[in-house]
Structures are given as structure tokens and as C-alpha cells.
Write a protein that binds this DNA or RNA. Structure first.
Length: 253
DNA sequence: GGCCAGGCCCCAG
DNA sequence: CTGGGGCATGGC
């Protein structure tokens, strides 16, 4: 019996900006592959497709992690029970880097828009009007004016620097967490929060604990004096539950 | 029509 | 190293 997955929470908790819900259909282009399915077909889809099995992280220890975190405190337990089986996707690091460069001082609706505009403008046409996010190689000759005209604003030079320095991503799997963080922060526009997102969503580093405005409020209100080590060794998963719950209902039951 | 958005850069102390 | 202003753009 395979561990089930909470599709709504997993795809729309803000870890990815690629997915759309079109009636009963979940749709996205992931690394040049157009993916589309009904919720009812999900289980069969992932067991027969190694790429998607990995992407949806079907073989990680969610049962153990959830039960461990549920014992930490009541609030976290409530969040987990509300959104149970939220998975941390195994995303392509470049796609995560771009998404979260666009995310700063921005709202989720507009992050998705910018992500899609980049795909339509520079990515490859796939199916059903969907486009893949362009690889860094496809963006080498893009200039700041072009990116600003898409609406990136002050983030345009950040993306330009990321395009130039994208090879930093290759070295990260071998690095200890703190070194991986500082390597990422050499990219302009990548600070502690964005770097943590890249390590969590692009490299499945469970130590990562992205601290944005929502999480600062959660930590201040619910966990004064504590830090991410309180949730070890599953800080990243705890962060997603706390963040998602806080954004959806202000954290209240 | 202001306020604000999954932050970060940059510069002052 | 800590703190706060400024930042492009548009959703609400």
C-alpha cells in the first residue's frame, strides 16, 4: 500500500509555480514534459512513471516524518492533520531558482504570471498551450530591457546574474548545507530565504527552513526563542505545513 | 487610490 | 552585524 499524497496542498502550497488546475485536471510542464492528469488517475500514473514517481517524492519517509513532527507540539500536529500528506517535490533546481528570484517582494498570483510569461516568451512550446520554462542556455542573449518589458522590474538584473552563474547549481549536491547556502548567495538577488527554498525544493535538503514574513510571524507567535533545530531532522517539511496553514487560515484552528 | 506582496541590496551607524 | 529605506509592478 503506497503512501498517498495530498495533491491540492502539494501543488498549491507555494513550492512550485508551474501548476494549473483546469476543472478536474492538474496541468504543468515540468522540465520539458507536459503533465496532465485527474486526481483519480494519480496513483496509477506515478507507479508507472519513474520520472513522476521521483518528482512527487513517493518513496521518502513521510509516514515516519509526520508522526515524529506530530509529537513535537499541538499546533504542528493540527497543521499536519489538516493538510496530511503534503509532499516536498523533487524539482529541477534551475526552475526553483527562477521561481523564487521572481518571488521577492511579490505576490503569488504575480509570481505565476511572470513565470508563465518567461516560459511563453523564451521556453519551448509543449501541448495545450503550455510552454516549458527556458533553460539558462536559452536565455544567454537576453538583456535587461527585454526582461523589464515582461514585468520583472528590479528582479531583471537578478535573473541575468543567475543565467550567467547557473553552473553554481551543479556543485551543490556535494556541499554541506552551510556551504551550499553561501554558494547560492553569490548569485545577485539570492539571500538566505531564497537560498533555503532552492535547497529544500530543488535538492530535498530537509535542514532548510525558509524564513519569510509569514514564518517570522509563526515563529514569533508560536515558537518564541526556538529555531529550526526544534523541528530536526524534518525542519523543511515542518516549515511547509506551518507556512501553508498560516497563509490559509492565519494558523488558527 | 493607496497598501502591500514567500526579500534583498546597499549604505549608514 | 544590525537596521531601515528603496525598489518595479500590479493585485486587491
Amino acid at each position: 500500500m503506497m503512501h498517498m499524497l495530498n495533491l491540492e496542498a502539494t501543488l498549491f502550497c507555494g513550492q512550485t509555480f508551474a501548476w494549473k488546475k483546469n476543472g478536474p485536471l492538474y496541468q504543468a510542464v515540468i522540465q520539458d514534459r507536459f503533465i496532465q492528469f485527474n486526481e483519480a488517475d494519480f496513483s496509477e500514473l506515478v507507479v508507472n512513471d519513474a520520472f513522476l514517481f521521483h518528482y512527487f517524492d513517493m518513496d521518502w519517509e513521510y509516514t515516519k516524518a509526520e508522526s515524529t513532527l506530530c509529537m513535537r507540539d499541538e499546533h504542528l500536529k493540527t497543521c499536519i492533520e489538516r493538510y496530511r500528506s503534503l509532499h516536498i517535490l523533487n524539482q529541477d533546481p534551475w526552475e526553483v531558482l527562477v521561481g523564487f528570484l521572481l518571488s521577492q517582494n511579490n505576490n503569488i498570483k504575480r509570481i505565476r504570471q511572470l513565470y508563465e510569461r518567461l516560459s511563453v516568451q523564451y521556453g519551448r512550446s509543449s501541448e495545450a498551450g503550455f510552454f516549458s520554462l527556458p533553460r539558462p542556455e536559452a536565455l544567454e542573449s537576453v538583456d535587461e530591457t527585454a526582461l523589464r518589458s515582461l514585468g520583472l522590474g528590479f528582479r531583471a538584473p537578478y535573473l541575468l546574474d543567475a543565467i550567467q552563474q547557473h553552473r553554481i547549481l551543479w556543485a551543490l549536491p556535494a556541499l554541506p548545507y552551510e556551504q551550499a547556502l553561501s554558494a547560492l548567495m553569490q548569485i545577485k538577488g539570492v539571500g538566505p530565504k531564497v537560498a533555503a527554498c532552492i535547497l529544500l525544493f530543488g535538492y530535498h535538503r530537509m535542514e532548510a527552513f525558509p524564513m519569510d514574513t509569514w514564518m517570522q510571524k509563526v515563529m514569533q507567535d508560536r515558537y518564541p526563542g526556538k529555531d529550526s533545530s526544534y523541528f530536526a531532522p524534518y525542519a523543511g517539511l515542518a516549515q511547509q505545513y506551518l507556512f501553508h496553514a498560516e497563509r490559509n487560515q492565519g494558523g488558527h484552528v
